[in-house]
């Protein structure tokens, strides 16, 4: 297939990148690992006039964790590095699981968490765990910086609340609270390497045995990774019990708004929303009780 003609830039600083983005207008596109952008271009779905690669910008590469400020994942940190980072392995196991279950080795070596978020697929695996952990994105533009909760980031398939001229520089996740637990469960028809047909993220914080705060995000069952607010409410104040898991699963399935496509039917997606919500909630309880 024909690759469109485009200009390519690899600036060294964020400021340079922002200037390029402003100079080249609507046709300019920011790229990190390129595992989504290039594929779309090859298939004629994206025809940028300029590609601005972030890979040469040193400051965007890092992954930082500290117990007070939490986790910052730079825009160009590869998925593979993120999933093998010792602090992330220790404090954010659900994110590690999400990354390890997505794509394949080659794509994880090139692709980035930031790219997975900016691509804004309803099935993006990193979105549910990041959202239930109160993840935020740091956006830079020539006008300055802003921070946006991931809850407010997605608008539709492939569409986000970033405005042209902005670059996502990093993703921030607060440090895990005591007695908190997070789980991500996903399913696809092909067991090994496949796009998620449904993904569910659950994050809870316990007070004693009871859940004092719950966040539940459903992936691939709505135009955006969606909060299951009613299910969260249902879980609030409750203790871990089979009955609760069942109720939560059923409620999440009701909340989901899946469609039928070639990967799965709406009815199977709904059923899987229930199953995965049960499983994720159970694991989140388990993890929270151990912390």
């Amino acid at each position: 297939m024909r690759l469109p003609k485009f200009a390519y830039f690899a600036p060294r600083t964020v400021e340079e990148a922002l200037n390029l983005l402003a100079d080249h207008g609507e046709g300019a596109r920011v790229m990190a690992g390129g595992t989504d952008v290039m594929v779309k271009m090859i298939h004629g779905l994206l025809k940028p006039t300029a590609i601005i690669s972030l890979l040469e910008i040193e400051e965007l590469r890092g992954i930082h964790f500290d117990a007070k400020d939490g986790l910052t994942i730079g825009a160009t940190a590869p998925l593979a590095d993120t999933a093998s980072h010792p602090d992330i392995v220790k404090y954010y196991p659900a994110l590690v699981h999400a990354i390890r279950s997505m794509a394949n080795v080659e794509v994880r070596n090139m692709g980035t968490v930031a790219g997975n978020i900016c691509n804004a697929a309803p099935s993006a695996d990193t979105a549910p765990p990041l959202m239930v952990m109160n993840g935020e994105v740091n956006l830079a533009s020539l006008k300055g910086q802003r921070r946006l909760s991931l809850n407010e980031f997605f608008r539709g398939p492939g569409v986000t609340n970033m405005i042209h001229g902005e670059i996502l520089t990093s993703i921030h996740v607060p440090p895990p609270l005591p007695k908190s637990g997070v789980s991500y469960q996903r399913i696809s028809a092909r067991c090994g390497v496949d796009i998620a047909a449904v993904g569910v993220g659950v994050g809870i914080v316990l007070a004693g045995e009871a859940c004092k705060d719950a966040k539940i995000v459903l992936g691939a069952v709505a135009p955006v990774p969606m909060r299951a607010l009613e299910t969260e409410e249902l879980v609030q104040g409750r203790e871990r019990a089979q009955e609760l898991l069942g109720q939560a699963g059923d409620r999440a399935a009701q909340e989901a708004r899946p469609i039928s496509d070639m990967r799965a039917s709406a009815s199977w997606r709904r059923k899987m929303t229930a199953v995965l919500t049960r499983r994720a909630l159970d694991e989140a309880f388990e993890r929270a009780s151990r912390r």
């Binding site: 092909r190 067991c191 090994g192 390497v193």
Partner: peptide, 11 residues
């Protein structure tokens, strides 16, 4: 191959 689901080495 993303949507034509051929088993892979991991399967």
């Amino acid at each position: 191959f993303a949507d034509y689901k051929m088993p892979m080495a991991t399967d």
